[in-house]
Amino acid sequence: METVLHTDKLTKTFGRLCAVNRLDLEVNRGQVFGMLGPNGSGKTTTLGMLMGVINPTAGNFTWFGKPATHHTRKKIGAVLEHPIFYPYLSGQKNLELNALIKGADPAHIAKVLDLVELRQRKDDKYKTYSLGMKQRLAIASALVGDPVILILDEPTNGLDPMGIAEIREIIKRIAADGKTIILASHLLDEVQKVCTHFAILRKGSLVHTGPVEEVGKGEEVVEVMAYHDDLSHCLHEFRGALSVKSENGKFLVRLREGFHSVDLNKFLFEKGIVATHIVTQKKSLEKQFLEILQEAASHRQPT
């Protein structure tokens, strides 16, 4: 697969603070790459370095296998932190300016305005836009010039649930076009829903990177409900049960490796219990994220 972005020990220090610490990342073409991390973990600083607005302290990076110049940036559509536009210009004029800088065809503007559903308001001044419209215009501006890569930094920050859903739809639509997307976010749910790969940053260091599919592999947790007075006891008798917990009237059974919900169901049936509810819980990225962060923290403690 073609490598789009490669960073090699990328480092940025602000005085005594180390914002990004020897970061090695690799993003391949067609991936939707999520950068996860709590606030202040160095996501935006990393993207700032990749986009030429922050000078790295050490290390280097390549786009498309070559050191970056401003010509490379024209092929990348990026919005960092929050939407940035000239408030006194209309949405249309702002996008025309973007197209001028990128050397893009101005005819493309109408298309991206349609994609983010801003055509109606295109001639209004940017400062009159709502936050959701600003975010959508930012995505439109990143799409002007038909970039090969899209970088979005917290694109749903501060939006209401409907706005979040809209932006997510747009991202999925763009990803379906085969564009490479780098998405920085602290919203795990968001990353899990739209990303194919992800990396976790903590205090500027990379603590994990891999495909999203792999999340949820490993031991299974099964939710069980049944009309039985001593369900807990029965469940404990099951050979494959690692532990049994009661939560909101359901029992959560953690299974040993090699055991699945089918085995549990069979076991219950043999005991003469019919489950009214039996569901395999998908391990969420959130859980994995917290686990990884905890692990990283405990590794650090002794030093």
Partner: peptide, 21 residues
């Protein structure tokens, strides 16, 4: 100074202008 207060200088460079340009 508008370019710095609105942070548009930053966005111009992200969009593909070099600092010299």
């Amino acid at each position: 100074t508008n370019e710095f207060t609105y942070r548009t200088a930053r966005q111009n460079i992200i969009d593909g202008l070099s600092r010299r340009q």
